[in-house]
Each structure stands twice: as structure tokens, then as C-alpha cells.
């Protein structure tokens, strides 16, 4: 975080910070960057990756096909369809 980036954020968020506030914000972000560097230096090579914050697992479904929805129902909200296709603005020249 430097004065150029902060100025941009100020404009985007329609804020106006005093010089003292600007110094405070820049110092605050510098501290947070240092915190992140501490984390980066921790050796996690032997730590198993956490896959989920909760001890949960998915349920699975048997491989049996069914067709509970009709195409017509699904296309009711479509701005444009043609012979069963959805129509979208042309994507190739």
C-alpha cells in the first residue's frame, strides 16, 4: 500500500482522508503485510491440507438416469429460443 494506491481507493470509495489518516492507513497495511510474511515462513510441508472447516462429506447418488424436467418448462424464461435451442448473441465472426 502506497500513496498512489490509497489515492485510487479514496476516489473509488468517495472518501477524503486527512494526511494523518493516510499515514495511519499506510502503516496499518504495512503491519498486515508483515503478519502475512510470518505465515509464509511457517513450514507446512508436513501438514495435511484442510479440505473443509467442518468434518463433513458429500452424499453420492446412484448412476440412474431420469428426466423430471421438460425442455419447454426450462425455456419459459428464455429471452429467445429456436427449435429447442437457447439463442444468445453471436460469439463468433
Amino acid at each position: 500500500m502506497d500513496r498512489v494506491i490509497l489515492r485510487r481507493l479514496e476516489l473509488l470509495n468517495q472518501l477524503s482522508l486527512t494526511e494523518t489518516q493516510k499515514d495511519e492507513v499506510i502503516a496499518f497495511f504495512a503491519d498486515r503485510e508483515n503478519d502475512a510474511k510470518v505465515l509464509e515462513n511457517i513450514d507446512t510441508s508436513n501438514v495435511e491440507r484442510m479440505v473443509h472447516v467442518m468434518p463433513v462429506m458429500t452424499v453420492v447418488r446412484e448412476d440412474i438416469p431420469s428426466q423430471p424436467f421438460s425442455r419447454d418448462d426450462l425455456q419459459k424464461g428464455a429471452p429467445e429460443t429456436d427449435e429447442g435451442y437457447w439463442c444468445v448473441p453471436r460469439v463468433v465472426e
Binding site: E80, D82, E83, G84, Y85, W86, C87, V88, P89, R90, V91, V92
Partner: peptide
């Protein structure tokens, strides 16, 4: 699948 040759003004989409 996208189909581009049915009509000139749109792309047709098949899911």
C-alpha cells in the same frame, strides 16, 4: 455445444 450455422444473427446453444 454452440451451433453457429443455423442463423446468422445468433448463436444456438445446446446443453
Amino acid at each position: 455445444k454452440l451451433v453457429h450455422d443455423i442463423r446468422e444473427d445468433t448463436t444456438h446453444v445446446d446443453f
